[in-house]
Design a protein around this nucleic acid. Structure first.
Length: 265
DNA sequence: ATACCTGTTTCCCG
DNA sequence: CCGGGAAACAGGTA
């Protein structure tokens, strides 16, 4: 599930239960999400602390606990956060469970492409400070797009949009949504994109990022009606604008969906 | 059985 | 050195 706005919504689930003591921590000893830290260390570090605040940046999440403990989470492809009753018992793909007096916070991830990181210190971890500018930041300007297009002139634009060095939080459906709205074919080489198309691209990146945050990011669920999102998943989908059949093909390593009548190479 | 998947990292090529 | 693409990671689902 997890792109920009879905990550923000997932974060808000845990964030809805701040300021309660973590009575017990349960970790999976085998999940690959602990490849960058020891599960037992996370268990020890978070026990008897209190979750004080949370933040997201693109697809990254950071949770701050008392005692200078910081937990970083990435949801990968299939990760999710949940809030359950305090009587909750561990299920098959639960990687990390935080038991509070009145609720339980759960991080589950069947495919285990997600990632847990632990930081202990007075200040935020360096890997958090050094993240690229967020698409939601006012400092995210068209120059970032211009520079990226120029540097990767031979790459298909779809692949560039998925590059987290430039577009923090952009995922497969968001990228298709942006290109559809900007009327750019996903296979277009970045170096072939004209100035006016680039203007549209920049505007639609902001539109999709903000639009997703204001809908999915707040209430979970799906983006608004009329978005390509609703038609792009399966073969035979119809373009919400033209009513014509959408095309699907692997571009930039990922299945891409576009409307041939709007998006020409 | 087969193929596919809202992500990232690593490896290999030119 | 850099850019680009394929493969790998792992389990569920159609």
């Amino acid at each position: 599930m997890p792109e920009l706005a879905e990550v923000a919504f997932a974060c808000s689930i845990w964030n809805s239960n701040l300021n309660q003591k973590i009575k017990k921590v349960e970790v999976s000893k085998t999940s690959r999400v602990f490849r960058d830290c020891e599960p037992s260390q996370v268990e020890d570090a978070l026990s008897q602390t209190i979750l004080k605040s949370s933040a997201t940046h693109g697809k990254q999440m950071l949770f701050k606990f008392t005692g200078d403990k910081w937990l970083g989470l990435h949801l990968g492809m299939t990760g999710s956060l949940a809030l359950e009753e305090s009587s909750y018992t561990a299920e098959k793909h639960d990687a990390l469970i935080l038991y509070q007096p009145s609720a339980t916070l759960i991080f589950k991830d069947p495919r285990q492409f997600g990632k847990v990181s632990l930081h202990i210190g007075k200040t935020v971890p360096s890997w958090w400070k050094d993240l690229p500018t967020s698409m939601l930041d006012e400092k995210f300007d068209q120059q970032i797009v211009t520079t990226a297009l120029k540097r990767h002139a031979r790459r298909p634009i779809k692949a560039l949009l998925l590059d987290q060095r430039y577009f923090q939080g952009m995922g497969n459906w968001m990228a298709d949504e942006v290109l559809w709205r900007a009327a750019i074919h996903p296979a277009s080489p970045c170096g072939k994109i004209k100035k006016t198309a680039e203007d549209h691209l920049f505007k639609q990146i902001l539109f999709v990022a903000r639009g997703a945050m204001n809908s999915v990011g707040v209430n979970g669920g799906d983006p608004p009606k009329g978005w390509l999102f609703h038609a792009r998943w399966k073969d035979g989908g119809l373009c919400p604008k033209t009513g014509k059949k959408l095309r699907r093909e692997k571009i930039g390593g990922r299945t891409s969906c576009w409307c041939p009548h709007i998006q020409n190479k």
